[in-house]
Design a binder for these strands. Structure first.
Length: 742
DNA sequence: CCCTTACCTTTTTTT
DNA sequence: AAGGTAAGGG
């Protein structure tokens, strides 16, 4: 017991030793928060609390996994519930399905599914093609759900025609979810929150089950999560919230910083512990980060301090282009490696995932090992989603969305016409698509089509006969009998990759059988709530590339924050005037703060003067954040080259005048040519374009060998006219084919 | 019905 | 740049 407390500082010790009653731990960046939470759990158990009575809620599965591991490492018996809000809710909703008026086997829709469904909802509500786009509608509805608002309430509060449309879309969307027997992420929280809000007996039951509630990253909880946590803790008030208002970076998805700011108002007798000693970063890093965050006006003052001395200055590097920036980062990484730093000790953070590409290319060329942490890349692969859709449909025959996805995947001759007829039939008789498929008749669809449709239904029926098998067996069964296996059997590179992905799904199923165990629907829930990030292990010997958001909670000896440019780091979507949601500069500043405070020893921030974004090369101004770091302990390195005027009017070869297309005057033309040349020099076009032009010999996968006659460089659909030795002249869209240059 | 081609939309971060 | 969708030809 003493061991647990001995290596803690005084406030940490108070937080760990606190037992009953509300506790708020305001933990500054790097102040040992995780350590406090895990110790606290251990301390509770050592003090006689049964592990089963402890509920620890985290924000990501990864954080939950880490916490379990650390607790186990301290030799504590397992049995505590440690997981994300969403996972807890999925579990509770299964347990209390009746109370929540849910059918067993409900599907959980991921973002992709949600947007698909939203598209349908907008269509059903007669709002298709209007100003309300699916993603905007989805965001608005998501926020409403997080505030526990029903469509009726949204409608009642509507202040404009646009709001009214959102309410209508919301109603239609919920109807569709219900028809599909599905929940989206927000529903998981919403339904659970409503249960807890409206059912005293459930509050009591769960309060007795979870006698100690711990919530990590409390600054990132939304209203629904607030209701859930407080509902469970209502009677015993054994609620421990940890977090840092300066690290609140999820307001955009409904997180409410007020939850943490008003904890003391919620619980007047709360014990408050402040952790302000930073054990992670050098003095320079901490000073720069503190300087930055001090520019936030809506903020409680806080002093982070460290007893560390020494360490290098924070570096701010200005570059010409995004590519040059990546190059500079690569060079610094190499230099650090030569100094003896492990690649795994370095990380590069960026605001948007799309920035990873230049970095990847550059690191790859420099032979620097790296790994990219991406959100849901794997589970979003088409072939992966297809396989999972089969399994979802098996568990939940009402899941029309999944059914629609796979009814003709792989192709089995059920086309658009047949599908819409079938949909009409299902709608008219009020049955699911799958059921309509099973009952398909010749006079509706034509004999051949009806037969194919029934064949699909029969296959699903047959697969459903094996639901009592292990999940791995079911997955393999689906893989083979659905025809996916055959469709992917060809030996080209793409199929090979897809096969590998599908096999990886089967592996996760096998792993599930071994480790967790449970029904197919258990497996599907787990898969739905997991992201690639969760499996992202500490990268042995490779540089980590991730978004600033994903970086939260991690630390690295050396950190690079790239893309510190106005509009990108204080991110702004400068689109038309109709823009409703102004971006929150203070949240962007907190995000930068989070990134900076991940660094232990070395921190480099960088920006580019020009960057290629969304297909266009645009000039960029340095982020205002860079000038907010203060001057002390910050070293600025300017790698930009002075812009010299170019006296060139014409240039043959690659551009062959195409760049000046649309020029109205000679001055226009000159300007465009100069810009294009500057772009090309900066960007180093990839080799396949650099040398491809008239006279080149190429090999086409289908048409064989040929000679390029003409290159029409018209982005994005650059075309080449090629005379093939065997089949004669063809126009090829380069985007659609991989030409081999000989 | 399927494949190819032309056009168009993109709104960042994540459970 | 890249993906999706809608329309057209086979």
């Amino acid at each position: 017991m003493l061991d647990i407390l001995s290596d803690l500082n005084e406030p940490q010790r108070r937080a760990v030793a606190h037992r009953d009653g509300p506790l708020l731990v305001l933990a500054g960046a790097g102040s040992g928060k995780t350590r406090v939470i895990t110790r606290r759990v251990v301390h509770l158990i050592a003090g006689g609390v049964a592990p089963q009575n402890i509920l620890a809620l985290t924000f990501t599965n990864k954080a939950a996994g880490e916490m379990s591991e650390r607790i186990a490492a301290l030799g504590t018996p397992r049995g505590a519930t440690i997981g994300t809000f969403h996972a807890l809710c999925a579990r509770l909703l299964r347990e209390f399905a009746t109370e929540a008026q849910l059918d067993a086997g409900y599907s959980i829709y991921d973002r992709d599914d949600q947007l698909r469904l939203m598209r349908q909802a907008l269509e059903a509500a007669g709002l298709k093609g209007g100003r309300l786009t699916p993603s905007v509608a989805h965001a608005r509805i998501s926020n409403a759900k997080n505030e526990l608002k029903t469509p009726t309430e949204v409608s009642a509060e509507a202040a404009s025609f646009g709001d009214e449309q959102v309410a209508e879309a919301y109603a239609a969307y919920q109807r569709l979810l219900r028809d599909n027997n599905a929940l989206d992420f927000d529903d998981l929280l919403l339904k659970t929150a409503l249960l807890l809000r409206d059912r005293p007996e459930l509050r009591r039951l769960l309060g007795e089950r979870y006698r100690y509630v711990l919530i990590d990253e409390y600054q990132d909880t939304n209203h629904a999560q607030y209701i859930i946590a407080h509902g469970i803790a209502l009677h015993h008030e054994n609620i421990c919230a940890t977090g840092d208002p300066d690290q609140s970076i999820y307001a955009w998805r409904g997180a409410n910083v007020r939850n943490i700011l008003e904890f003391e108002a919620d619980y007047p007798n709360a014990t408050v512990v402040r952790l302000e000693e930073n054990y992670r970063s050098t003095r320079a890093i901490l000073a720069a980060a503190s300087q930055l965050i001090s520019h936030n006006r809506r903020r409680k003052h806080k002093d982070l301090w460290t007893s560390r001395t020494g360490g290098a200055d924070v570096r701010v590097v200005h570059c010409d282009t995004g590519r040059a920036e990546a190059q500079a980062v690569a060079e610094r990484i190499e230099a650090a490696a030569r100094r003896g730093l492990d690649y795994g000790d370095m990380a590069v953070f960026y605001r948007v995932n799309s920035l990873s590409r230049v970095l990847e290319e550059t690191l790859f060329r420099a032979s620097i090992p790296y790994r990219v942490a991406r959100g849901v890349e794997f589970f979003n692969r088409r072939e992966v989603k297809d396989l999972l859709a089969y399994m979802k449909l098996l568990v939940n025959p009402a899941d029309d969305l999944s059914c629609r996805r796979i009814i003709n995947t792989p192709t089995r001759g059920i086309g658009h016409t047949t599908l819409s007829r079938l949909t009409a039939r299902a709608g008219a008789t009020g049955v699911s698509l799958l059921e309509a498929a099973a009952q398909a008749e010749s006079d509706d669809l034509g004999a051949a089509a009806a037969k194919r449709v029934r064949g699909f239904a029969e296959m699903m029926h047959a697969l459903a006969g094996n639901l009592n098998h292990s999940v791995r067996e079911i997955a393999e069964d689906v893989y083979r009998r659905s025809g996916i296996a055959e469709a992917l059997s060809a030996e080209d590179e793409e199929r090979r990759q897809q096969r590998a992905n599908v096999e990886e799904v089967i592996n996760t199923a096998a792993e599930f059988d071994e480790l967790a165990g449970g029904t197919l629907s258990d497996y599907l829930y787990q898969v739905s709530l997991v992201s690639d990030l969760d499996h992202f292990e500490g990268t042995g010997g490779a540089v980590t590339l991730m978004t600033l958001h994903a970086a939260k909670g991690l630390e690295f000896p050396a950190v690079f924050v790239v893309g510190c440019e106005d509009g990108l780091l204080p991110f702004r979507r400068d689109f038309g005037p109709s823009d409703a949601g102004e971006s929150d500069v203070e949240e962007e500043r907190r995000l930068t703060f989070v990134g900076m405070t991940r660094a232990k020893d070395e921190l480099t921030l960088s920006c580019a003067r020009r960057r290629r974004m969304r297909g266009q090369n645009k000039p960029c101004a340095a982020s205002c954040f860079l000038s907010e770091l203060g001057a002390e302990g910050v070293r600025i390195e300017d790698l930009t080259t002075p812009q010299r005027p170019l006296n060139v009017r014409h240039r043959g070869g690659f551009f062959s005048g195409e760049v000046a297309r649309g020029a109205q005057t000679a001055a226009d033309e000159e300007r465009m040519i100069i810009e294009a040349m500057a772009d090309e020099e900066a960007e180093q076009p990839p080799p396949e374009y650099q040398y491809l032009g008239p006279g080149c010999r190429v090999q086409h996968p289908k048409f064989g060998f040929g000679t390029v006659m003409h290159l029409q460089r018209r982005w994005p659909d650059t075309r080449a006219e090629i005379v093939f030795d065997d089949v004669g002249p063809k126009k090829i869209v380069l985007r659609h084919v991989e030409l081999e240059l000989l």
